[in-house]
Simulated assay, not measured.
Amino acid sequence: MDFALSAEQKQIRDTVAEFVDEEVKPRAAEIDEEDEFPADLVDQMADLGLMGMPFPVEYGGAGLDYHSYAIGLEEIARGSGGLGTVVAAHTSLAGNMIYEFGDEAQKETYLTPLNEGTDVGAFALSEAGAGSDVPAMDTTAEYDADAGEYVVNGGKLWISNGSVADTVTLFAKTDPDAGRKGISSFVVRPEEDDGFIVEGTEKKLGDKGCPTAELRFDDMRLPEDRLLGAEGDGFVQALKTLNGGRITIAARSVGIARAALEDAVEYAGDREQFDQPIADFQAIQHKLADMDTKVQSAKLLMHKAADRKIRGEDYIKEAAQAKLYASEISREVANEGIQIHGGYGYTTDFPLERYYRDAKLNEIYEGTSEVLRNTIAQQLLD
């Protein structure tokens, strides 16, 4: 087992870190306050090849391994949690659905512009009554044999990038009586497909800059060549995609936790009380030691899951553990960062309160902590 980064992985880390330090961090507070999609930063990431990191070059991707992708996303999230979600939803969810389950024509037509960053992707699975309980979804796609089209009706909720996406991977019931075996997935092009309606975007605690949309489909017609895979494959496709996505939510979590730790270390060295830096106090030193230990542990779990994915081995438990642990420690580390900053940490003059708000989301999306504990236990007991 080699824990050293390869030359390519170091280059990715350093390139993205430089971009984040120069372009993202100076804008992070503004993005959080205005909650506007930072299209110019997305364009810059596209120029750097960061919008299709884990996909092959022949489809416009960067051809990086999953370790490199996780490292890159960790750095992006270190600068902005919202921007980290933009990239994760675009790549791990929308892009990966098309890469894993699309045919060659679909990959060339829809995946390539996603990887090149000329298009933005979204993954439309959740509904008001179907979050963790995916088969409870109400959205339907009825096949019109005469027209060779699917007619989609229903709605989706909490869709990251949903209001700015050029390509959406959508899940709907093609056989409402078949339960999880009646769910299928499709490629939707919002600008082309009449009946695709953005109802609005959510006002959220954190994750600002990544619009979270409510979508509605009103007799939206999709050509049959928009179906991904076969009818009835959608539920399994969603689970496989979310498994990979959990690695990148672990990366987002680690990035936010690192930001909180780095700021806390700097502040502890600068802030003086009782004629000495607060870093000299053992209570502060213990907090920093625990924070760093949690960050390093989360990174190991993240890379263990990525390694199993790269090797083609089962990684359901490992991805769940990485996401569960990293998401919870990101909140804990951000909380301790606020504590070290004292009253300043509770104000918007310092970014610690933003880290805390951004970290909380990690425990909810792409599998709540409760669902992940169920997943881990099932893997242990099977």
Rank of each mutant, 00 (worst) to 15 (best):
A250E: 01
D119Y: 12
V86C: 14
E142V: 15
G229I: 10
G155S: 13
G232M: 05
D280M: 07
V265T: 10
L380G: 14
D47M: 08
L380N: 12
A136G: 11
R246E: 02
G79I: 09
Y110F: 15
G244Q: 01
D133I: 01
V371W: 07
A46N: 05
S253D: 12
A70W: 01
Y143M: 03
A260Y: 01
A377V: 04
M1I: 13
T167P: 10
V20E: 00
E328H: 11
E100A: 12
L41G: 02
I31L: 13
H341C: 02
D349N: 15
A213R: 04
Q285T: 06
Q11H: 10
L64C: 15
R180T: 14
A122I: 06
K323N: 05
A260L: 05
S163F: 11
P211Q: 05
E224G: 04
A145F: 05
K299L: 08
G72V: 09
R252F: 00
R354D: 09
L111V: 09
K107L: 12
V42M: 13
L228Y: 08
M137D: 03
E266S: 14
G245M: 04
S80L: 11
F186M: 10
D138N: 15
A105N: 14
L64W: 10
A257N: 02
R271F: 13
P135F: 01
V87S: 08
G182H: 05
E214N: 10
Y365K: 05
E272H: 05
Y59M: 07
I329E: 00
S185I: 12
D280I: 03
Q282M: 11
L324M: 10
A4I: 11
D119T: 06
A147C: 09
V168L: 07
D103S: 07
R252I: 15
V42T: 00
I310K: 04
K240M: 03
S327K: 06
